[in-house]
Amino acid sequence: MKLAGLKSIEDAHEESVWAVTWVPSTETRPALLLTGSLDETVRLWQPDELVNQGKMTGHCLGVASVAAHPSGHIAASASLDSFVRVFDVDSNNTIASLEAPPSEVWQLRFNPQGTMLAVAGGGSASVKIWDTTTWNLFATLSIPRPEGTKPTDKSSSKKFVLSVAWSPDGRRIACGSMDGTVSVFDADRGKFLHHLEGHFMPVRSLVFSPVEPRLLFTGSDDTHVHMYDAEGKTLVGAMSGHASWVLSVDVSTDGAALATGSSDRTVRLWDINMRGAVQTMSNHTDQVWGVAFRPGGMPGRLASVSDDKSISLYDYS
């Protein structure tokens, strides 16, 4: 497996680019790249030339996360002002503006079926699930407090939920928090199942393997990527190599490769079977906040975004 640089856009945004996702193709257009930035905009890009397809404003403060509905028509973005803006990709019309005070919003993900939107709820120590037809709050999955702690205890704020991921079958939700624990929920029953321990620093990104539904990858500030069996509660492996925080992880559609973006300014490609890094891309000049494999068929594409305001596109083969 191998990455080959295709195109890089310098100054794609006016400020740091913090979030990236692929909007799946529709009948009328191919898959697009969606990026969110500190400059309070969300922008659309057409691969492989990364032609700017539109700039969407409507957020105050930086855009921390973007997510696209599997249909490819709808996308959502979350910003530091704790709003989630749901909009039509092609027309840029706002469909809904979601907020669940006092919970702030961090990473957000649609479930593979497209019926739900999960939002990492930060200090509320919960994941908020929104219904994508009515845009009403469907459920709040709270991480149970450790026993014996009072609500006023300082440590409770450590279960600050940063990241969220759906299993490919949509039955499990995993969320990562500031203290490094990963919590697994039963999505259907809205029930907390168990914690996965091993990290002791914030887990900013996590993703399930599209091939093996139990296999969960987590990236943490402790510079490691962990592989968990989310059902069996076991740490399958730990991979080290980044010199600084792992900010973003994504698995290729064939489930063989893992891409990570890190504060050490590199994008790494990992062979999941070998459990080792096979390639390191160092074209970014600042922290790489997001990496995303294009869903669907060949040819494989990986996009990365960085604090250096640039977007890079790679061929994955």
């Binding site: 091993g198 069996d229 076991t234 740490l235 492996g237 080792g276």
Partner: peptide, 14 residues
């Protein structure tokens, strides 16, 4: 990297 540590119980991974 020919030998890899076996997987361990995530809660014992401490």
């Amino acid at each position: 990297g020919k030998e890899k540590p076996p997987s361990i119980d995530a809660n014992a991974s401490i």
